[in-house]
Amino acid sequence: MHLEITDLNRVFVGKRGSVVALKNINMHIETGEFVCAVGASGSGKSTLLRLIAGLDTPTSGTINVDGQRVTGPGADRGMVFQHYSLFPWMTVRQNVEFGLKLQGCSQKERFDTASYYLDVVGLINFSEAYPRELSGGMKQRVAIARSLACHPKVLLMDEPFGALDIQTKERMHEYLIDIWQRLQCSILMITHDVEEAVFLAQRVYVLSSRPGTIQRELTINLPGDEETPKNRTYKIKREPEFFKYSDEISSLLRGRETEETEAIAS
């Protein structure tokens, strides 16, 4: 057991009553596993990620990383944000080195680590560029390198490719699968994109909306998964298994949506 979430609840208390954002969340991520949580807007998925990152505190329940209870933010949970959160006044390399610098790594160690991860994300030739000079996809790759450089136990990703066009997004998916297989890291990614979740994850949690609860947990087995390294390329999107998983998740998400639209219509 690596990341374990037990009976997690988060209630936001506002002036006009309280809103249950997350209710009875139980989930776990094994070491080296790639897990996606899929949910429509309002499913509290970003809240979930913020809780794991320690940026927010749960109303009740616990989050443990390697048996250690999460009480605040820490570099053991690397976070890739939805919007590009690179610092525009630092070069790509300085951005990646920043976390290491704060941890007190020597200059050489910093340089080597940053070079390694920039190489992993395929941007070593852009290490002296400023974020402004990069495309959206490249910025997110730098953000991934920055998070990985601090050697997190788990990489948390909050809809990291939500702002990218579809072609870039698909390329990023293949990049991410590649990085994950090479580094054997644990990843929890939040998304509303069903195909993204099925394509990337080994396991998918489907979240319902208002309140956010776990509706279903699915283990994804696609043809080629038994090979090492796993052979997930975009051809897999034409396989019947891929459709089966996508349909199942979509209908779970849509079930709630139709109820809502009917309620609005009546």
Binding site: G54, L55, A75, F81, S85, C150
Partner: peptide, 11 residues
């Protein structure tokens, strides 16, 4: 997001 990054890095 910058503030979140700085909190994650415990600045």
């Amino acid at each position: 997001d910058y503030r979140n990054v700085s909190r994650v890095l415990k600045l």
